[in-house]
């Protein structure tokens, strides 16, 4: 049960999707060449790669800007989500009052709110952070609250019987018990936050991958848009992996998803 899978294991897991992607790219390349599709409609992978390496410097600058925005937004959004979950869990009346509203709020599309936020808060960092926070906060809050609510009854009973107070029960039992659930929320929020950052940049920014996409769209540079999409995918993936890595460091005692429970030893 080592934390790191061996190279051999990794290879066994990695090669099927790797081959699938390779196959897909080859088919794409062949189709574009065979049918003679115009580059402004659908550029071939090789053209996209060539363009990406040519404008690598500018792409890197925009990527860094988006990454920075994403990380700040993700940190703030997740913290707010976790804080809301804790408060609502500890004050049941507040939870019954606000939980339905919380669910309802998710029916408001963020992209519709973004222009409003620009009007209210200008074109600085603040409205963009708010967009990402809105996107991140929900999965974190809901998964944390679910985790708190699903605390093991026998453990809860034990803590009460030995006279633990509300704060002790929360700190020593409910919070650590909710960590796996919280992390699955964080994983979702991590990928959402990249999307949130790009949307925020579409609406109003002077740099960033979202801004770059808008710029290239008006120039019909489909190849560059594709390069931007690839970068967005890679960013999402990296953030997802980062959260998974932190989860592995934080969660102890064979509770990670995928670990079978109760490996017996006599």
């Amino acid at each position: 049960m080592s934390l790191r899978p061996t190279l051999n294991q990794w290879f066994r897991f990695a090669w099927p999707p790797f081959v699938a992607v390779l196959f897909f790219l080859t088919a794409w390349e062949a189709a574009v060449r065979f049918f003679g599709v115009e580059a402004w409609i659908l550029p071939s992978p090789s053209v996209i790669a060539g363009e990406a390496s040519k404008s690598a410097e500018s792409l890197w600058m925009h990527t860094l800007s988006t990454l920075q925005l994403t990380l700040i937004g993700f940190a703030i959004g997740s913290s707010v989500g976790l804080l809301v979950a804790c408060v609502l869990h500890l004050v049941p009346l507040l939870k019954s009052a606000l939980y339905p509203l919380l669910i309802l709020s998710q029916n408001v599309p963020t992209i519709a709110l973004a222009p409003l936020l620009m009007i209210w808060f200008g074109f600085g960092l603040l409205p963009k952070i708010i967009v990402i926070t809105l996107v991140c906060f929900f999965p974190v809050a809901v998964s944390a609250m679910d985790g708190f609510a699903q605390t093991d009854r026998t453990m809860l009973n034990y803590m009460r019987m030995i006279g633990a107070n509300r704060v002790q029960i929360f700190r020593k039992l409910e919070f650590p018990h909710a960590l796996p659930s919280l992390f699955s929320g964080l994983r979702i929020a991590a990928t959402y936050s990249v999307m949130g950052a790009v949307i925020a940049e579409w609406i109003g920014a002077q740099k960033g991958i979202g801004y770059y996409m808008i710029l290239q769209k008006s120039a019909f540079r489909t190849d560059r848009i594709f390069a931007a999409i690839v970068i967005i995918v890679v960013l999402s993936l990296l953030l997802f992996l980062l959260v998974t890595l932190v989860e592995r460091l934080v969660i102890r005692g064979g509770r990670r998803s995928g670990n079978t429970e109760g490996g017996e030893l006599r």
């Binding site: 009973n157 034990y158 019987m161 650590p176 064979g254 509770r255």
Partner: peptide
């Protein structure tokens, strides 16, 4: 107190 299930905290 000792409950029916061991109720040891897995973490």
């Amino acid at each position: 107190y000792m409950p029916q299930q061991p109720a040891l905290f897995p973490w």
